[in-house]
Write a protein that binds this DNA or RNA. Structure first.
Lengths: 169, 169
DNA sequence: AGTAAAGTGTAATATTATAACCTTTTATCT
DNA sequence: AGATAAAAGGTTATAATATTACACTTTACT
């Protein structure tokens, strides 16, 4: 498993790891990773860029699957429930979870240049934030943190004024 | 200015304070708080519940203003740019900023029972998060934190199993 | 095989947001 | 004050995202 979405890496490895973890998790939970669900997960993992639901439909259609909105939303809801994907509210988009099967609080670092998003563990902030809220009498249940900025790769490329070709994986 | 959106308070005070601050800020910035913009801000402040853009249209229509979507979105964009309102991405909704005119990072505590949202200063987490991201080479620019849970008022009412009437202000 | 539950197909529609173009109002310059 | 440019608003249409409702098919279980 790669340490970061930004740096060059074997992205096929990301995809196959995600599919294996999904299969394992579904088996454990006694739920079915049907072809549509599996394909949607695979499509979400095609890159580290969050994907809109409607972006997935053409690929599903090309595979011969039904490609009306409910198809993809049902698959995404299933994957969200299992924690296999996350939804980025600020982008209306979905991204594969990089460590499914573990309870965790996520924070997403979204690069405004290359659009890739990197999932970071939000536990430290989540706990501090939960405590601060509780001090005001508010009981925190769930949290959503999305950060926009510039990723290391794009900062480097910008610093060296266009020399290499961008990594699209 | 009230300490919390949840507890009973003189909500007319919230509204008039917001309008005064808006007038002051617009004067300082040399921009115009037109009747539509003022009314939209007032409507957003009608309660501490985040309002959808389309929720505002009927009230604008009742006031004799134009009430097509661009009208309200233009006003909201203006107010967002000035920092007079915030957008809650997880709800596709807008809420008045409780301390406009100051640079700040916000975090919203959203009650899943009464739907009210309370703005909290996110500076402590924002700084820690910025540092953690920077340690990975990521330069943070903006941040969005939305928390869902149960507010003190609703927790109290739930504990005492429906006795008083809920506060809707 | 019979049955219930889960999953999928399909059509329609709801919700949120923006584009494009034109008219009106306001501010500024002379 | 009148000319003019910029800002704001009116209007129509449409884009983008998401859900409802209902029929049909497949799967799992007895």
């Amino acid at each position: 498993m790669s340490a970061s979405a930004y740096h060059p890496h074997d992205h096929q490895g990301c995809i196959s790891t995600a599919l294996q973890q999904a299969a394992k998790l579904c088996a454990e939970q006694g739920v079915r990773l049907t072809p549509i669900r599996k394909r949607v997960l695979e499509l979400v993992w095609q890159s580290h860029k969050p994907m809109g639901a409607y972006d997935l439909l053409p690929a599903l259609a090309a595979d011969g699957f039904n490609s009306a909105p409910p198809t993809v939303y049902r698959a995404l809801d299933f994957l969200l429930d299992l924690g296999l994907v996350h939804r980025l509210a600020s982008l209306n988009a979905f991204i594969g979870c990089s460590h499914p099967g573990h309870e965790h609080q996520s924070c997403f670092l979204i690069c405004k240049v290359c659009d890739k998003a990197h999932e970071m563990d939000a536990a430290p902030w989540f706990n501090a934030l939960t405590d601060a809220a509780k001090a005001q009498g508010f009981e925190v249940e769930t949290q959503l943190t999305e950060v926009v900025g510039i990723c290391p790769q794009c900062a480097k490329e910008s610093a060296s004024k266009e020399k290499g070709s961008p990594d699209e994986s």
